Simulated scan of single mutants.
Amino acid sequence: MTLTDTNSWTGIREELLRRIHDRIWEPGSQIPHEADLAEEFGCARTTVNRALRDLAESGLVIRKRRAGTRVALNPPQRATLTIPIIREEVEALGKTYQHSLLERACQPVPPILHGVFHASLGEDVVYLKTLHFADDRPYAFEERHINLKAVPEARARKFEVSSANEWLVHNAPYSRGELSFSALNASDETAQILDCTPGTALFSMERITWMGEEPITHVKLIFAPGYRMHSVI
């Protein structure tokens, strides 16, 4: 592990995960105390605490007051949410990627998202409409809200050179997320954007990511006809 890695809780989490996966720390074994790990990594104890809390939320370690932290004997088998970068997805198909920012605005949290971006948030969100292309053909239409309380740097981003999808993957680490999938028929507006016939069956995905209890972003993606989702578990 490099010195840079130890400056962030995510870097420390990855190192702790490596030790668990490589059985340096066997299932059921005691993990060194936070103070000892902080000294080893040359970081604040709170940084180690954040990494351990994330592992505990994943069920990989068990934390008990006064008893310390142990590697879980039977960690839950969970699928890992890895957010794909659409540019890489398109390029993996051997096609040329580009995106067009159709709309960008800072606006109040819309009522439809009050259950996610709490109505008491009291701050604007960045609202974006983006069209992704593969070889000059529409690939996916993206509608996104970014919580500026969680990612204040997004306020200054134009998202014209790098899409919000790619920028958030690299700059807004998340602790959990939710996905939902659906089929829908293309409306007149969607058909025009994706260059298909109104009523065409399309694949749609909605995703919400959080850092702890703070929502980061809500995105809805509608893919052009012929899209196939591929996942490895």
Rank of each mutant, 00 (worst) to 15 (best):
I24M: 11
L81S: 13
G199S: 08
K149V: 11
I20C: 02
L102W: 06
E142M: 06
L184V: 05
G94Q: 06
N147A: 06
R137Q: 15
T69W: 09
G68M: 08
H170S: 09
D135F: 09
I193C: 03
L221Q: 01
R50P: 03
H145A: 11
V116S: 09
G11E: 07
S162G: 02
R155T: 04
S162P: 00
A35M: 03
D188C: 08
N165P: 03
D135A: 05
V71Q: 03
D135H: 05
L128F: 02
A67R: 14
R155E: 07
A150P: 05
M205Q: 12
W210N: 01
I193D: 01
P76S: 09
E39A: 15
I83K: 07
H218G: 00
N147L: 04
A67V: 04
E213V: 01
L3R: 13
A156F: 13
G11V: 10
A224I: 06
T2E: 08
K129E: 12
S175F: 05
N7R: 15
T47P: 02
A67I: 03
L202P: 01
Q30S: 11
M205D: 00
P215L: 10
G177S: 10
L121D: 09
A67Y: 11
D5T: 12
G94F: 08
T10H: 07
V161L: 11
C106A: 08
F41V: 10
